[in-house]
Amino acid sequence: MTDLTYQPDRTAVEAVGLGYKHWRGRALRDCSFRIPSGRVCGLVGPNGAGKSTLLALAAGLRRPTEGRIELLGHAPAHPAVRPHLGYLAQDKPLYPYLTVRETLRVGRELNPGRWDQGTAERVLGKGHVPFGRRIATLSGGQRTRVALALVFAKRPEILLLDEPMADLDPLVRHEMTAALMEAAAEHSTTVVMSSHVLASLEGVCDYLLLIAGGRVRLAGEVEDLLAAHSLVVGRNGAAGGEAAAPGGFVAGRPAGLAPHTVIEARTTGRQLTALVRAEGPVDGPWETAEPSLEELLLGYLRSPGAPSLLTPSAEPRARKAAA
């Protein structure tokens, strides 16, 4: 194992053996992970991976069919957790016939003692969303702003955002991301934000949760996850290994990388590129480099059989204690 930083701080979200099955089939199976408090966690995965299901379970909108998920040490539906939880569903549900002003009043009425009108107005003010307009007459971007204002003004300790920036233009997305980061830093809010646009998370998230096929593939600090992997480039068939079919994925493990866990290897002409989880220094005629976040995620997404990796801080503590 590489030297991964381990910070025994508060737990924001923890799942142990979490599974969810609905009538169409299984959305999540045996998911165990932990997100420490104060992190901005990117929840990544292909479409249909179970990202939305996971967030809905964390928000207490659905109940797990197996295992459990806890926020701040309690079930999501616990009355002590509810006031500290902000959730924004993917399609940003709002009451269409209410005006913006009335929508803010909904937030105030349903969050007595927590609502901060100033925060809401700050989020809305920048985009010049007219307060007297009905939600139904707003543009998609404006609606997203109202929805974000509603969750921010609750001043949650944990923010669960399902594809929050999907329908914003790049300028507004940048502004909203900045507002989110600012709010998160100010109140040391834990943010769990799903996205299938990998690039949108780069530089935003310091924590990562990759799920695919309903399972956790990667979880932990972005830095540590990147440090644990190497991108290895060399000549195809170097160091006496079998030559892989050009232009394709390498079926087996390229020789010479034997001591390491090869996540994915592919050839382009005579060149072989491999993403490996290095166990010690990589020897041989290879050029090694730290992968980018995108390269790391793509590597895992393209290799469903690759073993999962959880950094120590992402290991659920409840399971450890039970073991």
Partner: peptide, 20 residues
Amino acid sequence: TATATAKTGNEPPTGAAPRA
């Protein structure tokens, strides 16, 4: 829930919210 709380020592903040 109670046992998990005891183990992790996590408690949701109480009284952190200023009264509106």
